[in-house]
């Protein structure tokens, strides 16, 4: 089992090193709309609304408190 896990991790790591782009191929990735969080204010707004109305929070970032609403 440990061997399988080790091989799996090695495969994932070697896959990671062969993935990706060269520095001069980052034109698309550098665009605002391709950032993982495009609109920080909207993301914070949504996190706060859903934190207040649902039993889940966080995931994208910290899910901590800061509001008496839940």
């Amino acid at each position: 089992m440990k061997t399988v896990l080790a091989i799996g991790i090695l495969l994932i790591c070697s896959a990671c090193t062969s993935m990706g782009v060269e520095p001069w191929e980052r034109d698309v990735l550098a665009k605002d709309e391709m950032q993982l969080t495009t609109d920080a204010l909207e993301a914070a707004t949504d996190d706060h609304i859903y934190f207040s109305k649902e039993a889940s929070s966080g995931g994208r970032g910290f899910g901590g408190g800061g509001c008496g609403c839940n």
Binding site: C16, M19, G20, V21, E25, R26, D27, V28, L29, M34, L36, S57, G58, G59, R60, F62, G63, G64
Partner: peptide, 17 residues
């Protein structure tokens, strides 16, 4: 987070609270 190609980026987070 991992850049897969010129057009694709992915991320995975594990959180404990």
């Amino acid at each position: 987070s991992q850049v897969i190609s010129r057009n694709l980026v992915v991320q995975a987070n594990y959180s404990f609270s």
